[in-house]
């Protein structure tokens, strides 16, 4: 079983890193031939950086749009960030003091993450408009994330696993050694779902994470009259004219 999980995580990591890197490469190489920032938009690069920061950190547009989705979505993402940071302790020795410091917060963030996900799922089921636009994969994605949160919390509060052995397993993977993974059904479930999430990341809507940085309506500077903006494929038309 340890070997199986080792292979699973090597594979999942390759797919995640390779897949997302390829997507980013695709986004980056595809030109944006026209200036299409949603205005009012910043007129300087610094302003665009600030707009993007507010968008990514505070979900500014979503806040303007719908307070319920914003609150639940922000709760989930914020909590997820804390939980991920907390999990860095499984990959580092010694553990950075900041990571050590946030351990208790990360623990409670697990509950916040589950609550946020449950709220988003409730909206998906209860609000007619959102039910209409939901596909089976939207529900599965929530099920997967919620499953990860619940199994994680269960291992913390209900059925402990040998976290020292888990850490040794992951530290081992990082130097291509396969150490024994505790035989624990909750852990198997937890890790299996995490690996699945990593695998589907590059082919699913999870691409919104890298995608937002490449969104021309958000990342373009509003200066079309001051600078000429020309995509290579569009420049060819000028020769004809």
């Amino acid at each position: 079983m340890s070997l199986l999980f080792a292979l699973l995580f090597y594979g999942a990591t390759l797919i995640l890193v390779g897949g997302v890197a390829y997507r980013i490469y695709e986004y980056a190489r595809t030109p944006a031939p026209l200036k299409i920032p949603t205005t009012p938009a910043p007129t300087t690069t610094g302003g665009v950086a600030l707009r993007m920061f507010r968008e990514v950190v505070f979900f500014e547009s979503l806040f303007k749009s719908n307070l319920w989705i914003w609150a639940l979505g922000w709760l989930f993402h914020g909590a997820l960030a804390l939980v991920l940071l907390r999990h860095l302790r499984y990959f580092t020795e010694p553990v950075n003091f900041i990571i050590a410091f946030i351990q208790p917060f990360g623990m409670y963030a697990g509950f916040a993450m589950a609550a946020g996900l449950a709220g988003l799922w409730a909206r998906r089921l209860l609000v007619e408009r959102i039910r209409y636009i939901s596909t089976p994969s939207d529900h599965l994605m929530l099920a997967l994330l919620l499953g990860i949160a619940i199994t994680g919390l269960a291992m913390k509060f209900l059925m402990h696993t040998d976290v020292v052995a888990v850490k040794s397993f992951f530290l081992g993977l990082m130097v291509f050694e396969i150490n024994p993974l505790p035989a624990h059904p909750g852990l198997y479930l937890h890790l299996g779902m995490v690996a699945l999430l990593m695998i589907v990341f590059p082919v699913s809507k999870l691409l919104h994470a890298p995608g937002v940085f490449f969104s021309p309506t958000r990342n373009q500077v509003d200066n079309p009259r001051e600078t000429r903006h020309l995509a290579p494929w569009a420049a060819k038309f000028e020769a004809k004219n």
Partner: peptide, 20 residues
């Protein structure tokens, strides 16, 4: 391949419902 907007927008939507 010609429009980054289309390329990114086809992938990025999470069906959150904010626009509905």
């Amino acid at each position: 391949g010609k429009y980054r907007s289309l390329r990114v927008y086809m992938d990025a939507c999470v069906h959150c419902g904010a626009c509905t």
